[in-house]
Design a protein around this nucleic acid. Structure first.
Lengths: 239, 239
DNA sequence: GTCTATATAATGATAGAC
DNA sequence: GTCTATCATTATATAGAC
């Protein structure tokens, strides 16, 4: 669920030079950031000339676009089988934790996608919507997660496994934000427990405390909640 | 608490050129990122020459350092009076929401601080610790929040207002990550509800759904939690 | 497809006048 | 303190041979 990115573990990886360049770019962009990664560095990583990189993708930004599209294609923003605690959930969680390490290079890229900004182009739908709105690829990814989360929790409310909320949409936004935060802060989280980033060990250690929060909350009473409701309620009348 | 940054609202702002340059730098670094902001752009924002910027701070990185130190000094990572729902909490929440807009430029800088990496120097303690560890300013900020959160929740557990956790440290790390995520995703969160970023209106709308989560959780039963515990427990024996 | 130059532009930083 | 050149470096991108 939150914090869970499930991906198709890509086809027998085509080893064309173009693909190898793209993969190296994803690695370096994800590790160092877009602006700080040079075309030369990517070329060197693959063992080709910088000119060849440009030859294949036109410009550095074209390469970035190709990386974006590849990642967006590979990421299916869905919550594995870890839906609502039904049977198979235990196995699904184990499988997810086990394959964590495999996915890490892509996770770093996704993290950049969400925080770096820019890169406004779309996969292929410039058709109807050419209004000024500059929704970046990262924005679209975030929105997809929100939609998915909202739908899933609506189902949960329907079958009684999830509490109702006064504002289901906002709750979905918040939970999406929380879930993705472990990607953004993977280095810090890892450091805090002596691991090198979001390793499977780190992910495993996070699971129980996180589920504690989402199962029981952290507060034993609703004093905070009531105080906040009062604050909001009286705000309009007393600015 | 989580997601709550409280700052001293700075002294009558000194209007020395040096300070004005630093403020402009904070604005642009926060808005566009360190690498993408040029010395010339900062100079233009202030209305001086690029050479003067360098004259005052030595290098661009020196300027960044000055910004880091300024922000770290201004930010007191503490949870306003919004501690445990005691009296005064309502007023504290209102005050926090009201001053939200004022703080936004700094929040953007802090967001960069947490995600941009680099900038390894410390405020003034290079003394004992010159071991290879590269703890960035952002890392230190994150760690400070974790320490603060952990301490606060330990108090909460002691006075009965907060549930115990199987792993209090990890819980603090997770809650810090969640709290800071609203900074990182301020643009996306704003967009999701038709606001321009983390305005006070957006913050207000977030408050109740967030406190719902931290008061009741989202799940109505502990099926997920039990499944996860099983997954972790059997993992060692069946890899 | 792939390479070796090379053109071009932008940026951080310096020198020295005022 | 502040400015106007100016330098040196780096990075993207092009040209054209193989």
């Amino acid at each position: 669920m939150f914090s869970i990115l499930n991906m198709r573990l890509v086809e027998p990886d085509d080893a064309t030079t173009r693909a190898r360049i793209r993969d190296a770019a994803i690695l370096l962009f994800g590790r160092d950031g877009f602006r700080e990664t040079t075309v030369r560095a990517i070329a060197q990583e693959v063992g080709v000339s910088a000119a060849l990189v440009i030859h294949h993708f036109g410009t550095k930004d074209g390469l970035r676009l190709a990386c974006d599209e590849f990642i967006m294609g590979e990421v299916t923003a869905q919550a594995a089988g870890i839906g609502n605690g039904g049977q198979g959930t235990t196995a699904a969680i184990q499988s997810w934790l086990g394959e964590m390490d495999k996915r890490r290079p892509w996770l770093a890229y996704i993290s950049r996608l969400l925080t770096d900004g820019s890169s406004t182009s779309s996969t292929k739908d410039d058709s109807s919507n050419n209004s000024s709105s500059d929704t970046s690829v990262g924005d679209r990814l975030f929105d997809d997660f929100v939609s998915y989360t909202e739908r899933m929790f609506a189902d949960g409310v329907a079958d009684g496994s999830v509490h109702e909320s006064v504002d289901p949409h906002m709750r979905a936004v918040i939970l999406t934000s929380y879930g993705l935060s472990v990607l953004i802060f993977e280095r810090q989280i890892g450091r805090a427990i002596g691991e090198a980033g979001l390793t499977s060990a780190a992910a495993a250690r996070m699971t129980i405390p996180a589920l504690e929060i989402f199962t029981h909350g952290v507060y034993t009473n609703d004093a905070m909640l009531r105080a906040a409701k009062d604050a909001i309620a009286t705000k309009g009348s007393t600015p």
